[in-house]
Design a protein around this nucleic acid. Sequence first.
DNA 1: TTTACTTATTGTATTATTTACACTATATTT
DNA 2: AAATATAGTGTAAATAATACAATAAGTAAA
Lengths: 211, 211
Amino acid sequence: MSLCLFCYNENEKKVLTVRNKSLPFKNALVLPNKLLKYNQSLDEVCTEILTENIRNQEVYIEQLNAFGKLYRNPIGRVIDISFYGLINLEKDNIVLNHENNAKFKKLDSKLELAFDHNEMIELALKRIKRRMKYRPLGKNLLPNEFTMNELEGLYSSFLSKKFDTRNFRRRILEMDILREVKKVQRNKRGRKTILYEFDPKKYENYSNNGF
Amino acid sequence: MSLCLFCYNENEKKVLTVRNKSLPFKNALVLPNKLLKYNQSLDEVCTEILTENIRNQEVYIEQLNAFGKLYRNPIGRVIDISFYGLINLEKDNIVLNHENNAKFKKLDSKLELAFDHNEMIELALKRIKRRMKYRPLGKNLLPNEFTMNELEGLYSSFLSKKFDTRNFRRRILEMDILREVKKVQRNKRGRKTILYEFDPKKYENYSNNGF
DNA sequence: TTTACTTATTGTATTATTTACACTATATTT
DNA sequence: AAATATAGTGTAAATAATACAATAAGTAAA
């Protein structure tokens, strides 16, 4: 079982990687993963992977795909059921396990993982991209309070597409998932920024049932 | 591994079921399934299931989901990676294995399968429904030549929604995946019907990349 | 052969959604 | 007070989706 755990930090999407501790590909960069034990459900392994690597198991997770090619692991036949998850570094109170060398890495072409783990990331990103078209995204990636610009940046990053600010704002507001927070964000220069939060019930509803 | 194999026959969607040959739930109605052997890839088991039950392995298949709850099988922990497929009974030259009691059953509320196989069907139908919104459907379910009414019926059935004939035809033709066949279908009463076929290249293209 | 009936096919007007596009507001710095 | 940086806003045009009913082309019956 492998997990693509994404965050959105410093205006970039990143994925959690660890150093592989055993053969094959010992010491290579891989997605956090764990073998399923006989008495475990899939969810339980996810929880273990999370606990071990970030010390937090309360994270948004979706099943991705089962990878089952015969020779994907050179040592023997391993079927890997992969998941993806979305977190926010501060909000979710992450403690990276440095024994595993757990690190969030930028998603660029230089990121090369062992096994078929790059494929997993690609597939996860595709899935997220598709999902964004009929369900809201952001609650798991952003801090509790955020600006429209941050939300636009996130959408822009995951959909690899620039938005027109005015149209973006209108569309998001029409989704009816945000509320303005009383507070406001002071900036070094320029106008203050309105802060928003997700309306939990509405977000939940659209997240489960689509728009 | 289990397979939801759908067809669209006599204006109804149907799914392939078999009688379970072993415990637990011996003799119960189930989806065709098979245990994965050590030296098999997922695709190979799919092929086996297909060969065994319909004597044809050249079928459109997509991975659905891994079902991994601890007690989904009362006898022990079994993780089931499910697939769904779409076929056409005549075109695909199906020979049902009656030793397994392989039969296509209408998808109605009376259809009750053992294990979590009903869940699998539900999920597969949801997936297909979603997929239809950005990719074409029909090539695998319809005969090579078909009428607009048949295609509309198929869409209507899988999306559980009535269409306005005029709007439906316009939308489908705008998709640019059909071509008229020279022949025409004679009916007992009323006007002759134009026959269409899918343009293989265009269909393939939209099927892989979406509209 | 004319009329009734059956089924297939077609077009237009309205509404809703999406896109394109540039200036004003509010704060800080000099 | 002027320059600069960032946030925030409205309107018009184009495109897509929806609602809606009459005509065309055949068979069966009178």
